[in-house]
Design a binder for these strands. Structure first.
Lengths: 149, 149
DNA sequence: CGGTATCCGAGAAGATACTG
DNA sequence: CAGTATCTTCTCGGATACCG
């Protein structure tokens, strides 16, 4: 589609007409509210259901069950049931899940490293939206006022 | 809080009680339906609104607007309005946005590299759920049947 | 061309109650 | 302990219409 000059280009052309949909679905799953927290939590040791629930602040029982099942279904974690009374269920990352912690950690690092930049950008943006009130610009620009918050 | 043996451990302890919420929000944004596609699309050259719309198959006008605004608000991309008639608006990644393409591409690579594993895992899982019918196991195991699809 | 505003339906997610 | 079931609420995202 265009001469390539960076490695990125290769990615793009693949993404545009390849398994793009599949990939995006996986990435959406990773971006789901609790997935990353769970994966990172289990990254260095297996945990039991209620351990995870306690460790992750604010997750409901339902969402934990659902999330764990998704991850198990994708082969990212293994569920082990010890048939004793009372029940004992352990969750741990599979090798596949472990391998995912690498790229995830890089994303987390990136985010942590740019947290202040992101916040500053947001503040600037919100501020400018407010300032747009009566800025004597052309209608093409005034239109863009979202005026929420 | 256990003795650490991998780098991951450090990440975790930070995540558990730090800016964990903020980070997760950013990651959720990245996982949103169209964000990655947009970022990757703009990674190697700026594009206009309708160019993006055409390039990304299936996105609605509304969602493109919304997504672009989120990204602009976070300082990941810049919106340039050329005040001519008809209007001409260009979107391009900021340096911050560019820097994000790296970790994202690694995530994309990981996903592409493990696509078949993921699919296999899903198929296995779904198959086993069906097989659970009358498997003479303990009630603790039979309970876990979701029986959907 | 590049949006905004509004309405609507589907699915995600929370709260609560119950169970092997 | 580790879930399931159900109900309700909330958010996302598509369709449509309109506008500077």
């Amino acid at each position: 589609m265009k001469p390539s000059n960076t490695e990125v280009t290769k990615q793009i052309t693949d993404v545009e007409h390849g398994d793009c949909l599949e990939i995006n679905k996986i990435l959406a799953r990773i971006g789901e509210k609790w997935t990353i927290l769970i994966i990172l939590l289990l990254a260095y040791e297996p945990k039991r259901f209620n351990e995870i629930k306690k460790a992750i602040n604010g997750i409901s029982q339902r969402m934990l069950t659902v999330s764990l099942k998704s991850l198990e279904r994708d082969g990212l974690l293994k569920r082990t049931v010890y048939e004793i009374m009372p029940p004992h269920v352990e969750y741990e990352l599979t090798p596949l899940g472990q391998s995912l912690t690498q790229p995830i950690n890089e994303l987390v690092s990136w985010t942590r490293g740019h947290l202040s930049e992101l916040k500053t950008a947001r503040d600037n943006y919100d501020e400018q939206q407010l300032a747009k009130e009566g800025s004597g610009k052309t209608p093409w620009q005034k239109m863009a006022e979202p005026l929420e918050k």
